[in-house]
Simulated assay, not measured.
Amino acid sequence: MDFKTLDIFCEVIDNYGDIGVVYRIAKEFKKSFNDSLEIRVILNRLDEFIAINKNCEKKEIQNINGITYITKDFLIKNICTFETSDVIIEAFGCNIPNEYMEIAKEKSKLLINLEYLSAEDWIEDFHLQESPLGLKGLKKYFYMPGFTKKSGGLIVDSLFLKTKETVLQNKGKYLKKYLENFEIDFSDKLIGTVFSYEKNFTPLLESLKKLDKEVILLIMGEKSQQSFVEIFKNISVENFGKTYKYGKIYMKFMDFLNQEEYEEIINAVDFNFVRGEDSFVRALLTGKPFIWHAYLQDELVHMDKVEGFIERQTEYLRENHDIKVIEKQNKLLRDYNFRKENTLEIGLEEYDEFFKNFKELQSMYFDYSEFLISECNLINKIKKFIVKY
């Protein structure tokens, strides 16, 4: 299908993951099609987008790097002046305004229901299945992101891959950029990021104390930082402003990073603790050891997602890597995520094996990232589907 216009709808609730994914998709489509494709992103609110994109302002309509960003309220108020697009992406089951859909039924060609990332088996059966609208013109299809060739894949955008390559070639430069106050040699330090929901990290600090090297933890996000503040009430730490020292462990509380800055830093460090969906995928694509904190859901539904990912990574990794190391990493992922509520109670997880098997984990996740980049590229897959439609 020859398409000239693309509208992406996103409903931001209370986090940066949804807009983060939509922002990446919009940028990559723009890079691929340049001026031949007009792209609009319709958002219900701007606060989270302003936080991750320094060019965004509190405006109802604005153009950023060739992409038009519009608030949903502005769209509804001015619907009589808008033409709907050839292709519509409905991100994560958001509600597209009825005023828009009434026009789209007659004018638009393809509606893609982009679902949340999932590693569960059943998504392959639903991927690219039609969702009947009962219309002659506009057709709607499910698009199911996942970790296999038969799924919709992961967002592997060329901008991220370029950043990854640049950072790896200039690692010292980027570490100095984000650790400007550390007058130390980074080459013999273990450096990691921590971005989580509420979590008691006392067991992590105890494991790190056993290592024969100094450690730097870059603590990101209010929930992660507050979790460490609570720990500091019970242990003796040296306070250097936004940096704390506990034995040979340095903990730096980071200011909020935009999307591009976050991509730089997670590629520069040795390991990443991440949360949600967007940072989870970024951690995977770095090819570095990581631990994922899944978004908490009622009745332990989030554990189904964790188990699904464990199954997918084990299927791929077991052919070329030590199954005992894989199983220990899987146990850590389960224990780290098992909770009925987000609390600061000490969980089941133990981190000793993560650092004991660190070199093998480096090899494992490098291989896994190469597979995901080459065989599970959502951007390429979704563009191919639209063009062939």
Rank of each mutant, 00 (worst) to 15 (best):
L161H: 00
M101L: 15
F195R: 01
D298P: 11
I184D: 09
I310P: 01
F309W: 13
F74C: 07
W122P: 07
S131G: 02
K356R: 15
T5R: 12
D7Q: 05
F182H: 12
Y100S: 08
E115P: 01
P289M: 04
L111I: 07
L111V: 03
C56P: 01
D304S: 14
C94L: 07
S131W: 12
I346M: 12
G93S: 12
I155N: 01
A51F: 10
R24F: 02
G172T: 12
V22S: 11
F49M: 14
F29T: 05
F82G: 05
E198D: 13
E277F: 09
R40K: 12
N44T: 06
I326W: 11
S236L: 13
I249N: 08
G172P: 07
V41C: 09
K233H: 10
I231G: 03
I13L: 12
I61N: 03
M1L: 13
P97C: 04
K233R: 15
Q225Y: 09
L205V: 04
F82W: 13
S158D: 14
I61R: 13
G247Y: 03
K139C: 03
I249K: 05
H127A: 08
K162Y: 03
Q329E: 10
F290S: 09
I235M: 06
F142Y: 15
E260C: 00
S131R: 15
F49H: 15
E238P: 02
K149Q: 07
Y246R: 02
L208F: 06
S224D: 05
E350Y: 03
F366Q: 14
T163H: 02
F147E: 00
S85E: 02
Y389T: 13
L37R: 04
L361N: 10
F280M: 11
I386A: 04
I326C: 05
K140H: 06
L135M: 11
E124D: 15
V22Q: 04
S207P: 00
K171L: 04
N95C: 10
D352P: 02
K136A: 11
K54Y: 10
E198S: 13
V274Y: 00
C56F: 14
K252P: 01
T243S: 13
K388C: 11
R334D: 00
K171A: 01
F182C: 09
I89R: 05
I52E: 02
I67G: 02
K31V: 09
N98I: 10
N267P: 00
T243I: 12
A268N: 06
F338S: 09
E230W: 06
E230N: 14
L135K: 08
M251F: 09
W122C: 05
K72W: 09
K176D: 06
F92C: 07
E260A: 12
F9L: 11
L344A: 07
C56E: 00
